[in-house]
């Protein structure tokens, strides 16, 4: 089901753990399938000097977090801001379509961590990390069946391809 790169990052995840003296923290929670990601960054001279993650989620979610930390480490803030969920999935040599829904939130958490860092620099103080419960359940205009990867018809209670029930939120 998963590519070699995904399995490598899942089995040997890079940069795992809480960072107590982080300059920015971003947290993303997904209410539908329960994935949660926290990204911590340490910034030095506008560079991401150190980065780590904590993730609750499936194998894909863990691999996403791991490769994301490798992609962002050593980059300038401006470069890191260009990392998005699509480029993370590409670096993992692709993810199953249903995993694009729920597991591929790492870049969102990174962008929140960067904004948290910028806010702190601007003197905005908040309790806890910058977090978002926002969950994009769409890829552009189309929506995909989580079971068979086929495009799902809008408003249909079941997938016309595999016949399985679709979530109301699809």
């Amino acid at each position: 089901m998963y590519s070699k790169t995904v399995m490598d990052h899942f089995k040997n995840p890079r940069n795992v753990g809480e960072m107590k003296d982080a300059d920015g923290v971003g947290e993303v929670g997904n209410p539908i399938c329960g994935d949660m990601m926290t990204i911590y960054i340490k910034v030095k001279d506008d560079y991401i000097d150190d980065i780590s993650f904590l993730t609750f989620g499936c194998g894909a979610a863990i691999a996403v977090s791991s490769i994301l930390t490798e992609m962002a480490k050593g980059k300038t803030i401006g470069e890191a801001q260009k990392i998005n969920n699509k480029s993370v999935a590409a670096a993992l040599e692709g993810l199953p379509k249903n995993k694009l829904h729920c597991s591929n939130l790492g870049a969102d958490a990174l962008q929140l961590a960067i904004r948290d860092y910028q806010d702190r620099k601007a003197g905005i103080v908040r309790e806890g990390p910058k977090r978002s419960d926002k969950h994009e359940h769409h890829h552009g205009d189309a929506c995909y069946c989580p079971y068979c990867d086929m495009e799902a018809e809008e408003d249909s209670p079941v997938c016309v391809n595999c016949g399985r029930e679709l979530d109301e939120a699809h």
Binding site: F10, G34, G59, S103
Partner: peptide
Amino acid sequence: IEGEGIVLMLDEENIAVSTRSAC
């Protein structure tokens, strides 16, 4: 923790179990 991760890691150790996790 989430079940799929457990199943994949157990599989690496040649142990087959099932998860009822959604993902």
